Amino acid sequence: MKNLKSIAAGLCAALVMVGCNVSNTAKGTAIGAGGGAAVGAIIGKIAGNTAVGAAIGGVVGAGTGAIIGSKMDRAKKQAEAVKNAQVQTITDANGLEAIKVTFDSGILFATNKADLNAESKASLQQFATVLKDNNECDIAIFGHTDNTGSDAINNPLSKKRAQSVSSYLKSQGVSASQIKTVDGQGSTNPVADNATVEGRKQNRRVEVYMYASEQMIKEANAEAGK
């Protein structure tokens, strides 16, 4: 247990060190150097992103992390140009760089609805181009609600919102095989205080994760080994 705590503390420090003003390529190298799916799972848990990441097994080396980090740099820059999208670099369950794109449901949906409005469709049309241009990435889509109402309402509503986004992206040419997860998490993962109007608005959201597919990891491993 002591060793695990020491590892976790060291990884936390590493995440802080690589989190500021460093490209994904550099961060990918640092994370990849940590090695392996086990270490990646610890980092993913700290970052809260164990839900995303291809099931690969084995070790992810520094070279692989750098190659994937470079690809994610490019994807992030493209996603940042999408209207109404908030873009963050996160770490997936393999300890590799991934992209989290958040869309407010205040922009995407009317209250208690899962229907996309015209402005939302325009943003998602832009975003679909990013996903198609980065078709090596797998995609996970999660819907969220605030804590107004019961789980019996919020859980299916959050999933319907995720499904609306998924369906529209596919209508814009994103491959169904690229979208690996479409689910709702109800009000279980707030990002702001549900006691305030502004906080509840932030919690009503859809998150789209772009992360390295198994094929991307295999190709990066092969390239790193040359």
Rank of each mutant, 00 (worst) to 15 (best):
V52I: 15
K27Y: 04
A26W: 03
V59P: 01
S177R: 09
N155E: 12
S6E: 12
A14D: 06
V18P: 00
N84W: 05
R205K: 05
A162Q: 11
I179Y: 02
D138I: 01
A13N: 10
A222I: 05
T102D: 00
V22M: 15
V22S: 15
S105Y: 00
V16S: 13
I90C: 05
A140P: 06
V39H: 11
T111Y: 14
L116K: 02
N147T: 15
K113P: 07
M17D: 07
S70G: 14
K100I: 08
A26H: 08
L11F: 14
N84F: 10
Q125M: 14
K170Y: 05
V165I: 08
N112S: 14
G95S: 10
A140C: 03
G28C: 02
I67Q: 05
R205F: 00
A62I: 03
N135Q: 11
E80P: 12
A140T: 01
G40C: 09
N117I: 02
I99Y: 01
A162L: 07
D151V: 11
T181R: 12
G106V: 10
F127I: 06
N84K: 12
N154D: 03
I68E: 00
G57M: 04
Q126W: 03
L11V: 06
G95I: 02
K5R: 06
A55L: 10
A51D: 04
F109E: 00
T89W: 01
D193M: 05
I141D: 00
F142K: 07
S150P: 02
D115K: 13
K170M: 14
N134I: 04
K160H: 14
S166P: 04
G199S: 13
